[in-house]
Every structure is written in C-alpha cells, then in structure tokens.
C-alpha cells in the first residue's frame, strides 16, 4: 500500500470533482488537553507546577487541506504539531492519524506510523551536520530498510525537485538557510507521507527565501494534509483554513 493512499483514493481524474467529493479525514483532534510539567502522558496525579498547553482542542484536517495554526508564543501550536506527529501523547483526548488513535498506540507503533505517514519540517531544519544533503534526505528510508541504491535514487530525485540537484554531496554547513530548509522539506517528503507538519518553516529565513520555501511547501502539500504553525501572516495566507489558538484553546477554527 502506498503511504499516500488517501490522496490516491480521493484524487479522481477530474479535478473539479475533488471539490465536490469530501476528502476523508487525515488528522482528527478530539477534546485534546495536555499538561507539561510532571512526567507527561496520562495517568499521573495533578501537580501545581504543571503548565496546561492545550485545553479541550478539537478540529480535523482532511487530505488536501492546508491548515494554518496561528497564535502567540505558548498558545499550543507546536504542541498540536508534536501530538499529530506522535512525538507527544496528550494528557487527555484522542489524536487520530488516518483513523488510528495515536494515544492508544505504543511508542514503537507511534514511531512506525510517524515514519510511514508523517513528514516533519522544523523551523531550524535539524539536519544531521555530518551527513551529506542526499544522506539527510534518505535518512528515514534507512530505518524503512530500503536498499542503498533505491535510497540514493529517491533522495536525488527529491533534491532535484526542490532545486538542489547540484548540492547532493554538500554537508548542511555548506548550504544556505534556504537550501537547508529545502533539504529538510525533501527529507519530510521522502517516504511520501500523507500528512506534513511544518513548525515555523520560514521562521529562520529572509522574506524572499521564505516565499520560495513556502511555494515549494504549497506545491508538495497539494493533495496531502498540511499543518503549518506560524506567526507570519504571509505564511498563513496560503492556508485553506487558519485555526487560531489562545492559551491552549481554539478561539477560531477558520471554518
């Protein structure tokens, strides 16, 4: 089965019909509450020093949707992205990824689901400094057990698509900020995921480079569920819908 099954089942030959047929839900958050401070996760007793990052957050993202998350620092944008990608298990509520409740999965299962279905783009790129651009892009495929020749071919194809065909052997330290973020986008895309989460993807870039990266993200986000957290108006402007957060609550879901 392709990872990108949802897109394949919903995208028909006739583009206009996709507007009429409702896409299935790729991500659903239902009454999600999360508190930082103690051990994290469920089943712990209350603690005065805990910080509530999310309060009863519910919304969903359909395949092909570009959803922006806006709100001031500390409003819970990143926490939502971490919960959707399975890096964090919320204290309460359910996070469904392709109809699988991540909160009911083991660590190992969440890791596998993340590898297969979620691509993450970080604000600070987070490339491995001692690996080449190609090796960084191919990184998720190593764990997937893909043979080296196929990994390289796949990584080179994606690097060419993001305009870095001539930079495949460069280390991250030899690339500009915009180029590094393009490598990070190629890495997020390498397993052909159904959902892409991007946390301030243009936050470290100048305006022109940020626009280029955003265009690229919109291009690859087409037909996938894309969640973008940002403070930046121009970044949020490309979203189909913007969910606004304040103090961990959804104050507007853009609907």
């Amino acid at each position: 089965m392709s990872n990108h099954a949802l897109r394949q089942t919903t995208a028909s030959d006739d583009d206009s019909s996709t507007d009429d047929v409702e896409s299935p839900t790729a991500v659903r958050l239902e009454s999600v509450t999360h508190e930082y401070g103690a051990n994290g996760g469920r089943g712990r007793s209350g603690d005065d020093r805990t910080v509530t990052a999310l309060r009863n957050v519910s919304f969903d993202v359909r395949a092909g949707d570009i959803v922006g998350l806006e709100g001031p620092s500390g409003s819970g944008k990143s926490t939502i992205l971490h919960a959707v990608s399975g890096l964090l298990v919320p204290s309460d509520g359910a996070v469904e990824l392709l109809d699988t409740d991540l909160t009911a999965c083991s660590n190992r299962e969440r890791t596998r689901l993340r590898r297969r279905h979620v691509g993450i783009v970080f604000q600070r790129f987070h490339l491995l400094p001692s690996l080449s651009a190609r090796a960084n892009v191919a990184l998720p495929l190593v764990q997937a057990g893909i043979p080296r020749a196929k990994r390289r071919e796949r990584a080179e194809t994606l690097l060419e698509k993001v305009g870095l065909g001539d930079r495949i052997h460069h280390l991250p330290g030899e690339l500009s900020g915009g180029e590094r973020q393009r490598v990070a986008i190629a890495r997020a895309l390498v397993t052909d995921p159904d959902v892409i989460v991007a946390d301030e993807p243009t936050g470290e870039l100048d305006t022109a480079t940020g626009e280029d990266v955003l265009d690229l993200l919109m291009d690859i986000g087409r037909d996938r569920a894309l969640l973008v957290a940002s403070h930046d108006e121009s970044t949020l402007a490309v979203a189909d819908r913007v969910v606004t957060l304040r103090d961990g609550r959804v104050v507007s879901d853009g609907g």
Partner: peptide, 21 residues
C-alpha cells in the same frame, strides 16, 4: 510530484538492509 506516487516506503524492507544502513 508525480514520482511520489510510485514510491512505496510503507512496505518495510529487509532487516538486514536496515542494519547495514
């Protein structure tokens, strides 16, 4: 991004390939 549709990373490869990687 048509090529993406042809790629199937969900079918995990062999354990040996992973370890070599």
């Amino acid at each position: 991004m048509e090529a993406d549709d042809e790629f199937d990373a969900a079918r995990d490869g062999s354990r040996r390939t992973r370890w070599r990687g």
